[in-house]
């Protein structure tokens, strides 16, 4: 029954973002694995739409922060203002106090603001003027980022990229999908999405996803992948233990979305490029191989042989 709701959520999202089912599934996987999502693509590819749709479908409180170079941490976290009536400081929570926060164009903000956001992401709480305030639960950040070679950007350092569970790219839709998108716009205008579940149900789904069974053999496969990234000289930044954990939890969520209660190597392979690509860096300075590092990793390990 819960699974049906999950399928409905995917179906609903697909009506908005036509032809992007794999990406939607990955994004949902990320949220089910209780991780933050980084969407990297050119402007106008539907990054914002995707996050907005997900928030709506899953019934999460949503806010959006547009990152600019002059955005200060306080603009995002909130501020203490003196209230004349009560003769005391009152906290005005910033837009980050929401269940799903869209951090738009995250790499246009200054490093200071970036790190304030990333700290909040990791700790799931905000420390301001000596007071610690918990963020709502569940708490997700969907960061979007323009490819780093565009002007006016501060690329996120590797240490902070690691905090995003997954990074996905939306890419251009195919001809068929784009055509139906145009048709939809000409017809009844903006498609309205329905909320299919409440927060309690969503949290239950998260719990169920984490209970997917991972056999020893599958764990060994993950370990072989991770070890290979450390022992091979092709990777300058191998996968960290945090990445190992991320790989397992995302694979579990992926298996759960695909209605299976145990993990098979294909689950790991499906999420590998989203989980690993932004954490790996090539050892050679040749940029041509940069795009396919996780593919190199994937194709180096045999999931069957012990």
């Amino acid at each position: 029954m819960l699974h049906n709701k999950l399928a409905m959520a995917i179906e609903q999202s697909c009506q908005v973002l036509i032809g992007k089912q794999p990406q939607i599934k990955l994004a949902l996987t990320c949220l089910l694995a209780n991780g933050h999502l980084l969407i990297e693509d050119l402007p106008g590819m539907g990054k914002t739409t995707l996050s907005h749709t997900l928030a709506k479908v899953l019934g999460l409180e949503y806010s959006r922060i547009q990152f600019t170079s002059d955005l200060l941490p306080a603009d995002m976290l909130g501020i203490n203002i003196f209230d004349n009536n009560e003769q005391s400081f009152r906290f005005h929570p910033g837009p980050i106090f929401n269940q799903l926060v869209l951090a738009d164009e995250i790499n246009r903000a200054s490093p200071k603001t970036q790190s304030a956001l990333l700290e909040a992401m990791e700790e799931r709480q905000v420390s301001l003027d000596g007071e610690t305030r918990p963020l709502p639960s569940p708490f997700f950040v969907i960061g979007t980022q323009n490819p780093s070679h565009q002007s006016g950007t501060y690329p996120l350092p590797e240490s902070q990229l690691d905090r995003f569970l997954m990074r996905i790219q939306l890419g251009y839709p195919d001809k068929e999908a784009e055509k139906s998108m145009l048709k939809a716009q000409l017809g009844d205008g903006q498609h309205t999405v329905k909320t299919v579940m409440d927060i309690a149900e969503f949290i239950e789904l998260q719990v169920k996803a984490s209970q997917v069974h991972a056999s020893d053999e599958l764990l060994n496969y993950i370990l072989r992948l991770v070890t290979f990234s450390r022992e091979s000289n092709q990777f300058a930044n191998p996968l960290s233990p945090r990445a190992t954990k991320a790989l397992l939890s995302s694979a579990k969520a992926w298996a759960f979305i695909n209605n299976r209660d145990f993990l098979i190597p294909e689950d790991v392979q499906a999420v590998l490029s989203s989980v690993a690509e932004h954490r790996l860096r090539s050892a050679s300075s040749d940029f041509s191989t940069q795009g396919s590092l996780s593919k190199i990793l994937l194709e180096s390990i045999d999931p069957i042989a012990a």
Binding site: I264, E266, L298, D302
Partner: peptide
């Protein structure tokens, strides 16, 4: 693996990274 061998003898090679499914 025996089953795989039997199949691979007929010429269809499994890519080393390919999962069983």
């Amino acid at each position: 693996l025996k089953a795989l061998n039997a199949i691979e003898k007929t010429g269809t090679q499994r890519a080393t990274w390919q999962g069983p499914n």
